[in-house]
């Protein structure tokens, strides 16, 4: 028989443990991506002089494979005194990689706020920083939340890359189970199903949030 139910159930607890690591990496990675991405965008607006270096950095990160970035951080990092455990290094790499994407999303959000909003703030004598944080930011974020949600799902689906540096997340655990038992069908299938289920749930949540936001805008 190709599919062994008994074996599938037997490995579930181990995969469950690994799923926690996957979710951890996703949550931490995305938290970093969302905040760092926003920070980069705000810096670009508040201090125009930082715009060029930030753009170069963002382009560099977006134009090189995430896998290579993970390797660089984990294997080359120690050479320059940056010693991180695999999960931290991997999460950091994923977070920075997606921060680059998120910052572009945020930027689109800020650019979509009409110039006249800046002018109205200026005419009321609000300084640039206050205008940015109190007037522009609250208008720039809600429209881009769905796009950020899509990156959350994308980031989640890329966490198996962490298996390349032996983080005991789902994919790595499935591979280990496979090499121990010579049965790959069950672990790999279960991992796939887990990602499918979580992605579908996330997508539904994003749609829900999106609907609420559109409602808020029409208010």
């Amino acid at each position: 028989m190709i599919w062994d139910w008994a074996f599938a159930i037997e490995i579930l607890p181990r995969l469950g443990q690994a799923a926690i690591v996957t979710v951890q990496a996703t949550v931490m990675g995305f938290a970093l991506a969302a905040t760092l991405g926003l920070g980069l965008t705000l810096a670009r607006i508040a201090w125009p002089r930082t715009a060029l270096p930030i753009s170069v950095g963002v382009e560099l990160v977006r134009s090189t494979p995430l896998l290579i970035q993970i390797f660089v951080l984990y294997f080359v990092g120690p050479e320059i005194g940056l010693v991180l455990d695999a999960l931290t290094a991997g999460t950091l790499a994923i977070g920075v990689h997606y921060a680059a994407y998120c910052s572009e999303v945020y930027r689109a959000g800020f650019e979509a706020v009409p110039r006249s909003q800046w002018e109205a703030a200026e005419a009321l004598n609000l300084n640039r920083g206050t205008a940015l944080m109190r007037i522009i930011l609250p208008q720039a974020i809600p429209p881009v939340i769905p796009a950020l949600g899509n990156y959350l799902v994308a980031l989640f689906k890329e966490t198996p890359l962490l298996s390349a540096i032996a983080v005991l997340e789902l994919m790595q655990t499935a591979k280990i189970i496979g090499s121990e038992s010579f049965r790959y069908t069950e672990p790999i299938t279960l991992v796939g199903l887990f990602f499918l289920g979580m992605s579908l749930i996330s997508a539904a949540l994003i749609r829900l949030v999106e609907a609420r936001i559109t409602q808020g805008v029409r208010r």
Binding site: S116, A121, A123, L124, L126, N127, T130, P138, V217
Partner: peptide, 25 residues
């Protein structure tokens, strides 16, 4: 100044629009 296209802050109420700058500035 009052603008042709109002330029109210859409995320704030009428009251919010009127108190933001007096508080911050």
């Amino acid at each position: 100044m009052v603008f042709q296209s109002f330029n109210l802050f859409p995320h704030l109420t009428a009251m919010g629009n009127c108190i933001e700058a007096p508080m911050r500035v």
